Simulated scan of single mutants.
Amino acid sequence: MEWWRPSRRGAIGEILPEYIQLALQLNARSIVFPNISTGIYRFPKEKAADIAIQEVTRFVQEHAGLNEIIFVCFDAENAQLYSRKLQYMRRN
Rank of each mutant, 00 (worst) to 15 (best):
T57V: 10
S30I: 06
N78F: 01
P34N: 07
L26T: 09
Q21W: 12
P44A: 03
A52E: 01
Q54F: 13
A79V: 05
K45V: 01
A48W: 01
F71H: 10
Q87D: 12
A49Q: 03
Q87I: 07
A48C: 11
P17K: 03
F33N: 00
F59M: 08
E68W: 08
D50N: 12
Y19A: 12
I36N: 10
Q21Y: 15
I53P: 01
I20L: 14
L26V: 08
C73A: 11
A28T: 09
R29A: 10
T57W: 08
F74Y: 14
E62T: 07
H63R: 01
P17R: 05
Q21M: 08
N78T: 06
S37G: 08
I70V: 15
M89L: 15
A52R: 06
A64P: 09
Y82V: 06
P34Y: 05
Y41N: 01
L81N: 07
R84G: 02
N35P: 02
R42T: 11
L26R: 15
V60G: 03
I20A: 02
R58H: 11
M89Y: 13
V32R: 09
Y41A: 03
I69D: 07
I51S: 01
I53L: 15
D50K: 12
Y41S: 01
L86K: 06
I51C: 02
K45M: 04
Y41L: 05
A23L: 08
V72A: 15
I53F: 05
R91S: 14
D75P: 05
A28G: 10
M89V: 10
L24R: 07
Q80Y: 10
S37N: 02
F33Y: 05
F43I: 01
I51F: 00
N27F: 13
L16K: 07
Q25L: 11
N35V: 12
L16N: 12
Y19F: 13
A79M: 11
L16I: 13
Q80K: 13
